[in-house]
Simulated scan of single mutants.
Amino acid sequence: MLLSTHAHALVRRIDTSAAERMEGVHAVLTAKDIPGDNVYGIALPDQQVLAEDKVRFCGEPVALVAADDPYLAEEAVAKIQVEYEPLPAVFDPVSALKANAPQVQPKGNLILHTRVRKGDVAQGFEDADVIVEDLFHTHGQDHAPMEPESGMAWVDENGTLVIFSSSQYIYRDRRQVARVLSLSANRIRNIASTMGGGFGRKDDVTVEIFVALLAWATKRPVRLAYTRHESMLTQTHRHPTIVRARAGATRAGKLTALEGVAYGDSGPYASLGIFVIKKMALHLGGPYHWPTYKADSFSAYTNNPIAGAFRGFGVFQAAVVHESLIDRLAERIGKNPLEFRLENCLREGLSFSTGQVMTEAAGLPKTLERLQEYMGEQDLHFNTGSQVMA
């Protein structure tokens, strides 16, 4: 694969002639060679298969090469000439949503705004004796599966396109391939290989469309395996987030209100970012009972690497926020942080941030009680004035 060396740029010219003349090179494909639609996407069809007029992140695929061996393919890729016209880029979700921000996608940089409201938050803060507030940043993270993304494709004796890949969702992959190659789904057979680690990374399309395009163009078996560098550069990651949140409690130890706004960096394409960052608005308060609650989440396009599904699905980022706020409230009112959590955690009969009443699966109280017992058995306790165990 030829990958973009710019985070945001217009593609003015692509010259593949030198690569095409090489002996042992069987196909050199660019966007103009795609038989169907040059677009795919799980949540939104917003991602180009191969960059056509513009690249939107460093590492975006621009061209594909099929050759007799990987070394020859690399040599051919190096001979492809691309003329770029760099554009201003944006690298954080808050800046991306400003009126004068560089536009990553034609329809703007906002993917989805999710609102969650419960009760009168203003009154909740009026009732609070203590209020804590802070700005939180969580970083991106790579899944780093033991086996990087890989796959094979070939056209069998019946003219069926067969794709063998390390995928978490082969039927969804088939729908994406069908659109790009302009084939009916019954002409495509996807087979899932041993996973080799997924963690959400292989929930999205990885190599499937690329090996399918090359196999269909050459009518020869094609294999593609990403290096670790290619995997980390081109594939999805955990969303970096920026969150402003505040929480209130009474001196008696009861939570009264939580308010927050979360911004998720989805990179230049949505992948599953709509659902990941949407969940942040729901889970910003965590497994605790907030009588009043107000949360907004915004998923935004940027020119950073793509973010998508990752274990926890937005809840890990939210946990950084609500657990920090709970600790600070406990410290301000002089409560043991474990006891404070026990007094305020969700139980059957209490309502979640969305207003849903818990009727089952409220297992946190028993977990905290067992932890409390264990700390007693091991003579563990919290240091005065901090939340560090000694």
Rank of each mutant, 00 (worst) to 15 (best):
L2Y: 03
L3N: 09
H8T: 03
A9M: 12
L10Q: 11
E23M: 10
V28A: 14
L29D: 07
L29N: 10
A31G: 05
D33Q: 15
G36I: 06
V39Y: 04
V39G: 12
A43S: 08
D46W: 15
D46V: 12
Q47I: 03
Q47G: 05
L50Q: 00
R56T: 04
F57D: 15
F57Q: 08
V62L: 07
V62M: 15
A63H: 09
E74V: 02
K79S: 12
Q81G: 04
Q81C: 10
V82E: 12
V82A: 04
E83L: 07
Y84A: 08
E85L: 04
A96R: 06
L97R: 07
A101S: 13
V104E: 03
Q105S: 09
Q105H: 12
Q105T: 12
P106W: 09
G108W: 13
I111P: 03
L112W: 11
D120Q: 05
G124H: 10
F125G: 06
A128W: 00
D129E: 12
V132C: 08
F136M: 00
T138G: 03
H143E: 02
A144Y: 14
A144H: 14
P145I: 00
P145R: 00
E149L: 03
G151C: 07
E157M: 10
N158K: 15
V162T: 11
V162F: 13
F164D: 14
S166K: 15
Q168T: 04
Y169H: 11
R174H: 13
A178C: 11
A185K: 11
N186Y: 13
N186S: 13
R189S: 13
R189M: 15
N190A: 14
A192W: 09
S193P: 05
D204Q: 01
I209H: 01
L213M: 15
A217D: 12
T218S: 11
R220S: 03
L224S: 06
A225H: 00
Q235M: 01
H237P: 08
R238K: 08
R238Q: 10
P240M: 14
I242Y: 07
G248E: 05
A249M: 04
T250W: 04
A252I: 04
L255D: 14
A257S: 04
L258Q: 03
G260M: 00
V261W: 01
V261Q: 07
V261A: 07
Y263L: 04
G264S: 03
D265Y: 13
G267K: 06
Y269F: 11
S271N: 09
L272N: 04
F275M: 01
L284E: 01
W290L: 08
Y293A: 12
A295G: 10
A295Q: 11
S297T: 08
N304Q: 09
N304K: 11
A309E: 00
R311W: 08
F313C: 01
F313S: 02
Q317V: 05
V320W: 00
H322K: 03
R328I: 00
R328C: 06
A330S: 12
N336W: 15
E339I: 13
F340Y: 05
S353G: 09
T354S: 05
T359S: 09
A362H: 11
P365Q: 06
T367D: 10
T367Q: 02
R370I: 14
R370H: 15
F382A: 04
S386R: 04
Q387R: 10
A390H: 02
A390D: 01
